[in-house]
């Protein structure tokens, strides 16, 4: 029929392709290698947009200043000082905003035709998303470090042992990573950068504001409060509060948050990969 074997024989040895049921698949190692190549590509691209980096740091800092010095005085957080209450919330909000970038970036790649090129290459479709989310995770590490420093400058004073602070940091990163996948799915489903931008704000604002991030949920009316208290943002914020300033107790929200994150990851990774396949 054709010369398939002539081209296959030398190729297969170094291609990471394995055969199963007569079809070719990529080994897990090959998927990760490709993911690494694509993550490096993404980081390089990000680093070459210095203005973009500056703005992505400036925006959360402005939020910190607004809430700390403008709304803060009017919000009663009981025994906890507002700045201590606020910083875990705003750090989590920053993480979710950072995750929005994933979906936006993918829509840009879609419209430039780069996604078509990537999808025509002998790589796993998931490798593109693995690379992209990994690169955004690296950027978020730096964003969170900046936010932590800004928090300390405006009076945030964690009281808990270092290992708990480390755990809080990792939890926020895990949260941003999971939300990167959600954002990837949305971006790949709406496809258009402008739509992705507004769609992002539609789900992110209610999720972050109808939570314990900026105000105690006890002040909210019944239904909103019910939503807010089961919102994964609230659970992550409460866990981070517990792990950094000791209140509320971190155990229960941490476990609940981890369950949420695992569940969201299980749902949105396949959804995003499927959307990428169809995009």
């Amino acid at each position: 029929m054709s010369t398939a074997t002539a081209h296959d024989a030398p190729a297969t040895a170094r291609t990471g392709l394995v055969t199963r049921n007569g079809r070719h698949r990529l080994s897990a190692g090959a998927v990760l290698t490709d993911g690494g190549v694509l993550a490096a590509r993404q980081l390089r691209k990000t680093l070459r947009r210095p203005t973009y980096i500056i703005f992505s740091f400036v925006q959360p800092v402005i939020f910190v200043l607004l809430f700390r010095y403008i709304f803060g005085g009017a919000i009663d957080t009981g025994a906890t000082s507002y700045v201590n209450f606020l910083m875990p919330g705003i750090i989590v909000q920053t993480a979710i905003f950072g995750a929005l970038v994933t979906g936006l970036g993918l829509t840009e790649d879609l419209s430039s035709g780069v996604v078509d090129r990537l999808r025509s290459l002998p790589i796993a479709r998931s490798a593109v998303l693995i690379g992209r989310t990994a690169a955004d995770l690296v950027v978020n590490v730096f964003t969170l470090l900046v936010m932590t420093v800004v928090g300390l400058l405006v009076g945030f004073r964690p009281t808990q042992p270092a290992w708990q602070l480390g755990a809080a940091f990792l939890l926020v990163l895990a949260f941003s990573y999971v939300f990167s996948w959600i954002s990837a799915w949305i971006g790949l489903s709406v496809r258009n950068p402008e739509t992705a931008q507004s769609a992002g704000f539609i789900w992110v604002f209610p999720l972050t504001f109808a939570s314990s991030a900026f105000v105690p949920t006890s002040t909210m009316p019944g239904p909103v409060r019910a939503f807010a208290e089961h919102n994964p943002v609230t659970l992550v914020v409460n866990a981070v509060r517990g792990l950094t300033i000791g209140a509320p107790p971190p155990g229960r929200p941490t476990v609940q948050a981890l369950i949420w994150l695992a569940g969201l990851l299980l749902i949105f990774v396949p959804l995003a990969v499927r959307a990428f396949r169809r995009a």
């Binding site: 398939a4 081209h7 296959d8 190729a11 291609t15 392709l17 007569g22 079809r23 070719h24 698949r25 990529l26 035709g113 078509d116 090129r117 025509s120 290459l121 002998p122 790589i123």
Partner: peptide
């Protein structure tokens, strides 16, 4: 079986 196809093709759009 798209993977060996992708290995065999080059696309310029």
């Amino acid at each position: 079986d798209p993977l060996p196809v992708r290995l065999a093709i080059g696309l310029a759009g």
